[in-house]
Design a binder for these strands. Sequence first.
RNA 1: UACAUACUAGCUCAGAGGUAGAGCAAUCGACUUAAGAUCGAUCCGACGCGGGUUCAAUUCCCGUGUGUGUUACCA
Length: 854
Amino acid sequence: MESRYNPASIESKWQQTWAQDGLDRTPQDSDKPKFYALSMFPYPSGNLHMGHVRNYTITDAIARLKRMQGYRVLHPMGWDAFGLPAENAAIDRGVHPATWTNQNIAHMKRQLQQLGFSLDWEREVATCAPDYYKWTQWIFLQFFDAGLAYQKESAVNWDPIDQTVLANEQVDSEGRSWRSGAKVERKLLKQWFFKITDYAEQLLNDLDKLSGWPDRVKVMQANWIGKSIGAYLEFPIVGSEEKIGVFTTRPDTAYGVTYVVLAPEHPLTQRVTSADRKDAVAAFVKEVGEESEIDRTAEDKPKRGIPTGGTAINPFTGEEIPIWIADYVLYEYGTGAVMGVPAHDTRDFRFATDNQLPIKTVIVPEGEDAAKPLEAAYTEAGVMVNSGQFDGTPSVEGKQKVIEYAESQGFGKARIQYRLRDWLISRQRYWGAPIPIIHCPDCGAVPVPEDQLPVRLPEDVDFSGKGASPLAKLENWVNVPCPSCGTPAKRETDTMDTFIDSSWYFLRYTDANNDRQVFDETKVNDWMPVDQYVGGIEHAILHLLYSRFFTKVLRDRRLLNFDEPFSRLLTQGMVQGLTYMNPNKGGKDKWIPSHLVDANDPKDPQTGEPLQRLYATMSKSKGNGVAPEDVVSKYGVDTARMFILFKAPPEKDLEWDDADVEGQFRFLNRVWRLVHEFVSSPKGTKNNGQLTKPEKDLRRAIHTAILEVTEDMEGDYQFNTAISELMKLSNALTDAPCKDSPVYVEGIETLIKLMAPFAPHIAEELWNEIGHSDSVHHQAWLEVDESALVVDEITLAIQVMGKMRGTIQVPANLDKTELEKLARESEVAQKHIAGKEIKKVIVVPNKLVNFVVV
RNA sequence: UACAUACUAGCUCAGAGGUAGAGCAAUCGACUUAAGAUCGAUCCGACGCGGGUUCAAUUCCCGUGUGUGUUACCA
């Protein structure tokens, strides 16, 4: 055995051996319980960064542990390969998106393999491959067939210079196109939507089933869905047949409505405006329309609005009330109109005060009357007053009663409102899965027949970045006969949002090479749900919500039989790098790339100014990244893995620190030396059945380590503390005086096995060196021998009045009376209780005795 | 603004109603021409702040401060 730990040679050696032996392949026929470990698949941007490495290291450690624990493990990898950067590469550099993407995939796959992740590459998927997006299109048709895919006019971001539609992420916070810099306009286009709102209630309720998800992710999803229970009420417009519908959560305040407000965009605005107000209203609408979303919703801004001159009737009181328009009413939410109840809503109160609108109190706290004027809105529950027949009703009950009354009178009903909107899935660009629809002048939107899938992306395309989507310009691709009636028709030229590709990839892994079906029902139901999903918190809402939605729809199509796709979710923290900032500079210039800075004396290389040191998420613009391959070439994969797992709990941000990486490398070196000394010394053969005290102590250390590591890995994966236990065991072995004992052999073997999921290469090498021919990764995980944990003597704490006064050594497992007797007789206790009356004695077996004195 | 979450050694993090703990860093010593590696030893704590419950609170409860994240007028 080499006396020095040389990671480079052992890592490549074992990676080859494992590949040959098929160590990473998913077991096909096995009666073992299943375990599906999954990392969120990456976008093939070209290079693996530390965030990827952290993500996959976590999942890999789990996969390896579960294999040792007797599970058949599915641990696949693939590529979220459609998307904008590929198309930009085409526009900027003239490389075809497919070429660019495939090169990146090849490069990143090689990087992953060098990192030794135990992935089953036979199940690799890439969403841009026709044999994948064929099934994405097939799933779209399932949605279409279920009535869950529909078209609607919708506003898109339109770049007037490039004459093209932009995605939201291509529009900066100033509302300008990232490419042309032009002010983006809103333009109405016919777009495809998925009806996720049909599943809002299920998506909300089933969050309760996700006990293995972090609470904050569930809270974020619940907020996103945003369920409100209330009423829909209609206010007739004076001099018109039309009515203004509003949604309210406070129907109990309906008698306090003193005005109605429309969003400026509301179509009724034109209708209700009186002739003399036309110009003022038009000016106001224009002004608000030009404001950016940010200005309009700024918190400190006063609520602005103007009267339209029109009036409506409060159907509860019969009073005429003015109709206003105001910028604080959002057209996108509810009905785009609200009833104004200044007395009982803070926003309405402020608006009414600013605009001299009447304030009418209709709820009072119990035992008070409505006489005194309000200084602020009273938004709590209370008793209804000034509310006709409802006077005296508690407002909580009043909600339901008012709804019933409105319903009986025909001007309202109960309603549940969600913040969640339908999912706009059309993208006017090339590098995505084409929507498999043909528009026929006679038959309308006709699905492409299944046997004609996939609708392939044409390859000879012009990428100028200008004009309509590249697909729309391809006459011979667009013009096809209608599949239903044969008349000349046109293909849909939009492609699908890439979130659709990633909403079902975890299902495809269970049967990745099936060319006849999207997946085999038995296989998907066998492997799913994913037992442990690992990825970034940035997907807390969109990707995870969409995937849950897809799962429920496909379940209702009877393609699978479970409700939720991911049983347990681990949202890993970011990887942060040491970052230098010049506080005197602004914008991007303030970040000074770390390779330009002397770490001992951080100064701006241009100005000589002192720099601030901080930790920030690694990024190109800050120049604070650490390249995985640099770390690997210096210390090896196992050190990188150990550092990443040890430095922070997985869900927290990780501060990259070279000194700590060094520390992990030293730990692996210590283990290497320990085993090296063990291999080159005579083995213990002594076995007379009776263990000496050092042997007992060492066995206790061994089995404590097994217990702690196993517990740390159960549930929430505390890798950092698990590795800390490995260090303790390693220290115990180093210090052990009984190196010739069979217990020492047990200790060495235990340490290597416990290390295997975290540092797989060195564990395999050491396992091999101590004389085993089978892989350490095939060994069964360790069982705790409870008897080894037993201690003969314990330290008993002596407390007086709850304060620690000292300790005594006593035999373990004495009963309460014996403990009390020993404690009472002890010197420490005597010193503090002598001459005092003992009122009470609390005895906690094997822990402490507490005297309560007068 | 609401919600979530955190606050423990210089740093990163464990911990549990009952003696506060690991790793790294630091300091000193040994070895070395020197450095590194290694070995040995050492140091470190109002458990954010205030109150309550308890025989006993760092741990449970309430309030408060600070940081972070999501959300930003959702009617």
